[in-house]
């Protein structure tokens, strides 16, 4: 692009092109969706196996979560330092993720006071988070997969505890792992253009 004067139509076209280019460029590569998707998926299945084996250490399976949190914090800090462009959507996704983490913490620590099994609510939180993030980054597969998780959250209230664990695994498979792969593929194809 050179430094030259343009007419009104060219100006308008240029503005549209640049704004669309900047706004439609994905800044999320799907890595964290995949990381959390697989982490929760594997942990939930291990937890299910331990519960089935009536192990008294079953709940220890979830100790992977704080480590996942630490890894995520380090990853995000590094990513922020190396990013060439900071979009407003990055900020919104950050706020939604923080709200999700706080909500998850409250639900998990107050299960006794809730007097119900917290797993359907956890699936509901997964669905809410992926639905909002899908809207922010304008990635339809994420929105559609989140809708499936909403259905799973609704259904989870009608199943026993052990089945709910499997529904959590299914929920992250549908709303994290599947769209995570699709997002990563789109991000890579965009980077290769």
């Amino acid at each position: 692009m050179e430094e030259r004067e343009i007419d009104a139509n060219q100006s308008f076209e240029l503005i549209n092109k640049m704004v669309n280019q900047a706004q439609n460029k994905l800044t999320e590569n799907g890595f964290l969706l995949l990381f959390w998707g697989w982490l929760v998926f594997i942990t939930a299945l291990v937890f299910y196996c331990l519960i089935s084996a009536e192990s008294s250490y079953a709940s220890l399976a979830w100790v992977t979560m704080p480590f996942g949190g630490i890894f995520t914090a380090v990853y995000v800090m590094k990513k922020n330092k190396t990013e060439k462009v900071k979009s407003f959507s990055n900020d919104y996704v950050g706020y939604v993720s923080i709200a999700f983490t706080i909500s998850m913490f409250i639900v998990l620590t107050q299960t006794n006071k809730l007097q119900l099994n917290c797993y359907p609510i956890i699936i509901l939180l997964y669905a809410i988070m992926t639905f909002i993030i899908g809207g922010i980054i304008r990635f339809k597969p994420l929105i559609i997969c989140a809708l499936v998780s909403f259905v799973l959250a609704f259904a989870a209230f009608y199943f026993e505890f052990k089945v709910q664990i499997l529904l959590i695994a299914l929920s992250v498979l549908v709303s994290y792992i599947l769209p995570g792969h699709l997002l990563m593929r789109k991000f890579k194809s965009q980077s290769n253009v």
Partner: peptide, 11 residues
């Protein structure tokens, strides 16, 4: 009203 500056501002 120049191509490059307008492109930069639009981004």
């Amino acid at each position: 009203h120049s191509q490059l500056r307008l492109a930069v501002i639009s981004i």
